[in-house]
Design a protein around this nucleic acid. Structure first.
Lengths: 134, 134, 134, 134
DNA sequence: GTGGTCTAGACCACG
DNA sequence: GTGGTCTAGACCACT
């Protein structure tokens, strides 16, 4: 598994898991329809609690990135991924606002900030999922 | 006071307070050397506990954005603000990574993402603090 | 628990706690990776408030001497301890300066002062942490 | 006046004042019998509160470093300075213990620690008051 | 059961 | 009147 957890981070483990699965989808490591490990096996692999993995999966299902079937197990949402929802936009705006403000105070200008954001994006999403072309 | 809190949010109150004060500095509403309300008066204003305000102030002091004096109370760091530290870069990278990945999955491309970031920056930092020019 | 507090002292309880935990690390009573009591149990043991214990733990975490995990609780920083930082040097210099000056006025000469310092050091750091050898 | 205060330090102003006067005595800038500014004039000079200066003077008088006369004003203790009292030894031991422990944890060995202490001593007490000879 | 957060109310040191 | 410290008690997120 490609997941790396930092158990001593202040970021909850299930959140780290969510983030890394989303990253996996973004960089093409996980493609629509791909299977994910079962809750039990992933928990065993990562040596964390079942509930923690389950919570991450449930959140990803709730947001439409995963499907959870009783028999087949867990798979990456086949077909269309959810687009930019109002909820996501609110969340992203709130977080970017805080980052942008702190960046500004620390001396980064608008260009530097957006260039930084773009660089991170390109690191995270090296491969293309086929619909993010200009 | 210009602070608006969302007591229902899952973002801790003291974090919201920290963010909004940083925003205040970024947009010029708070200038270096400006006084901030005492913990007691701000707590009363916002109808929250003084310890919550204190926690926010302490964090901002710790990061070098505020100074806390015995008698004069709390003021915005006069002179130079702290620059881009390693901790800040780590934190910003981690958060941007998650946002960028989710944005990519939801269909935003690199240009859209960085343009969004830049737009937020310009909203937050309308006035200029004098050193963020190209 | 090896902690002894003087509730009458003008030294804050959380500071005494911080000092004694650092001492514990210095004399080998606490080794890297060792667990510390939970805030609640230590507070109960010492008959003080859990917030006071928490404040001490947070400060030690902040300085890099402890790690605070979600579930496992609190452990002594495994691996490398933080070295001599600029802040520490500033703090130590300030305190030693005051002590040295008063010692001089009270009739101790340089050799006596440094011998006293060395004696205290050897009392405090009886065992060896493996890297303080000449 | 040779006093320099850091108003944004967490060290109380009166303590800084006490320390600097003791330093003045240690380095010979202030000799036994020398007059000190009146409470009023020193407070005016340093732009601090009368009470603050008074508190520092009272503490120094209490410890036997100053004499305060109604008419003549304040003078450095003429004749013999107080020696090493039990109270001072307790205080010095407590502070050195904490410093030594933290130094040990941060990787300084006994020699480095005592050498550091000696170096500070010699900075502070360049001139000799005539009785600190070996 | 752990730490994280918040509240309420109190006393003290500082200036 | 200010922040610093401490207590008591509560709810919540995480595991």
């Amino acid at each position: 598994m490609f997941v790396e957890l930092d158990l001593q981070s202040d970021v909850p483990i299930y959140t780290q898991l969510v983030d890394q699965i989303v990253e996996g989808i973004a960089n093409g490591g996980l493609k629509p329809g791909d299977p994910l490990p079962s809750v039990r096996s992933l928990a065993a692999d990562l040596d964390i609690n079942l509930h923690t993995v389950n919570k991450a999966y449930q959140q990803l299902k709730q947001e439409g990135f995963l499907q959870i079937h009783r028999k087949q197990g867990v798979i990456v949402q086949p077909g269309e991924m959810p687009g930019v929802t109002a909820e996501f936009e609110t969340r992203m705006t709130r977080q970017l606002k805080a980052l942008a403000a702190e960046s500004a105070v620390r001396g980064l200008n608008a260009e530097q900030f957006s260039a930084y954001a773009e660089r991170i994006y390109r690191q995270v999403s090296t491969t293309d999922n086929g619909r993010n072309q200009p």
